[in-house]
Design a protein around this nucleic acid. Structure first.
Lengths: 338, 338
DNA sequence: TTGAAAGCGCTAACAC
DNA sequence: GTGTTAGCGCTTTCAA
């Protein structure tokens, strides 16, 4: 292993000078810098991460708690992980993966062993047992999701109430006065993942303001059969030109298929607005008018906030809830406005 | 921060005794062990990862190189990451995520900075520029995928030639003597990801042995339009009861839809065998007869091999190619045998 | 502008 | 069975 001592010896300087050349934390003469950099190059020196972490109390690692747990909804997760990893690297941080099935123990481990400088937590439940643990960790933590009580932790998420409102407003604008919401699985509802209620609350509020009647079909069993049953019920309740809102993005493909099999044409015989990523919406057959989940925007905002926290972690953290604006994209499952 | 010195003081022993109690690397009297463990509990002591890594030259971290790169095929990736993370934790390792767009630089960083004890590399190309770099790293590396020249690195992957053979054999068994293979996108072909050719080679061999005529439709443009064009061509070439083999799992949903729209019934008017995960096959409409990709098996095998390497890393590594047996699951897009 | 030296918290000889 | 001690490779005072 090549150490900074080797570099120092080759460059004819002290070890601390090598360190300062790398960190830029004090001024170095041009000549010294040149010699040190040449030696680093020649030896292909790379600083030992453990030693650096030990001496500097900074690991240059972000802990990422992902919802890998038996039975967790893992669809749509990848864009988050990918964006977070990219943002981290852009600031010279690495990402350590921790699975949610470790629960609070994973958080304690990350902080207790000084494995990372900050933590990103995904898949937050309304009353998440990990929140108080995270808040007491002594390491900056950011939540992707909004629990009932963030306990002072900053949160970033899609503005789900707004997403609900957008769906309701769009359906009102194209002439529906009756909407059926096709909700989530019993498992998701039981876990009380925050966005379920937040979306529905926004939707209900806007629907009420616009004089739209709405009903909710839930729980929806996972898989084809569940979607089929939900569709059957929704069509029975939806009137002669039904309008469906589907925050449960998993169910959308099967719903579309059931609709097609009945000879119904989305956008003509009925309207459907999904809550899903644009990719998923585009992949629908036909492409689905959707309110976008914007996983990349949400991740980027979360990381921005996290790095701000990391910079000025001495200052009293101002807890915030940042909500990312969803976008409505009109595709083929609704008739165009006007 | 609580250190092992604090634990030692509270337990009335030396610091090294605390270390030995934790590592179990020498025998400790029952009474001492009890006192030390009580102190650890009381102070909720957790060892500092950086210090431990520095002193022991072991990080307890596995580096995972995932194919997050602009335009990379990222579908079906999550089960790999998830399995790998779970296997790692089961052996008390954490997982550090490195994105493939860092290329060889990411590998050098992982090893050069002693960020991890071993590396798992995914998404291997036939002639992958990272292989020689990885082979010279001085850290155990395992490949998920089989390059043309593994340069001594152990590889684990699905047995794609066998998968190709299984698809051909099944179609022969149900009476087809003419098959159209619907291949990959230009981008995947250009990257020369190893499994493309390996699957086709196996398929072609078995087809030849069984006297099956086959043609390949490729490249297939991504998205709905590409699938539609490919289907059109395949049906034109497929005879009166076409048989399709689709190693390009991304295209399967759109193909099924195109088939349905033409009023054709899979399993009656034509046969289709996909190369995809069982989950994806089950989610098809109708469920697709498939040769399974077995991401969890592949990952588990890779991690087993990796840990074996890590244990006896002194011994001369015996480079191996481990191939995981695919399984054929008959669902609704082929007629039952016999 | 630079060097010397004291740790960071842990492990692992080496003693007894 | 246990304690003492010398590092692991780096950062960062303190001196010059």
């Amino acid at each position: 292993m090549v150490t900074s001592r080797d570099v120092a010896r080759l460059a004819g300087v002290s070890q601390s000078t090598v360190s300062y050349v790398m960190s830029g934390r004090r001024s170095i003469s041009a000549e010294t810098r040149r010699r040190v950099e040449a030696a680093i190059e020649q030896l292909t020196y790379q600083p030992n991460a453990g030693a650096r972490a030990l001496a500097s109390q900074r690991t240059q690692v972000i802990g990422l708690v992902v919802p890998f747990a038996p039975g967790a909804d893992t669809s749509g997760l990848l864009p988050f992980i990918e964006s977070i990893a990219n943002c981290a690297r852009a600031e010279d941080y690495d990402v350590l993966l921790v699975t949610a099935d470790e629960g609070s123990a994973g958080l304690s481990r990350l902080a207790g062993r000084s494995l990372c400088d900050a933590i990103v937590m995904m898949d937050i439940e309304a009353e998440d047992a990990r929140i108080p643990v995270a808040a007491a960790l002594g390491v900056p933590v950011i939540l992707i999701g909004v629990p009932d009580d963030p306990a002072g932790l900053p949160c970033v998420d899609l503005d789900f109430p707004r997403a609900g409102r957008m769906a309701a407003a769009e359906l009102a604008a194209i002439g529906h006065d009756r909407v059926v919401v096709i909700g989530h699985s019993a498992e998701v509802i039981a876990r009380d993942v925050n966005f379920v209620r937040r979306f529905q609350r926004g939707f209900a509020a806007e629907a009420a303001e616009r004089g739209i009647h709405h009903e909710i079909v839930a729980p929806v069993a996972p898989g084809r059969a569940g979607a089929e049953a939900a569709l059957e019920e929704a069509l029975a309740r939806g009137g002669d030109r039904p309008a469906l809102v589907v925050p449960n993005s998993q169910a959308i493909p099967a719903l579309l298929h059931g609709i097609g099999r009945r000879g119904l044409v989305p956008g003509r015989d009925l309207s459907l607005i999904g809550l899903c990523t644009d990719d998923a919406a585009e992949a629908g057959e036909p492409p689905v008018t959707n309110v976008s989940l914007e996983p990349r925007d949400v991740s980027r905002r979360a990381m921005q906030t996290l790095f701000r926290l990391l910079d000025r972690s001495r200052e009293p953290a101002v807890p915030t809830v940042e909500l990312v604006e969803p976008r409505l994209a009109r595709r083929r499952t609704t008739i165009p406005t006007g």
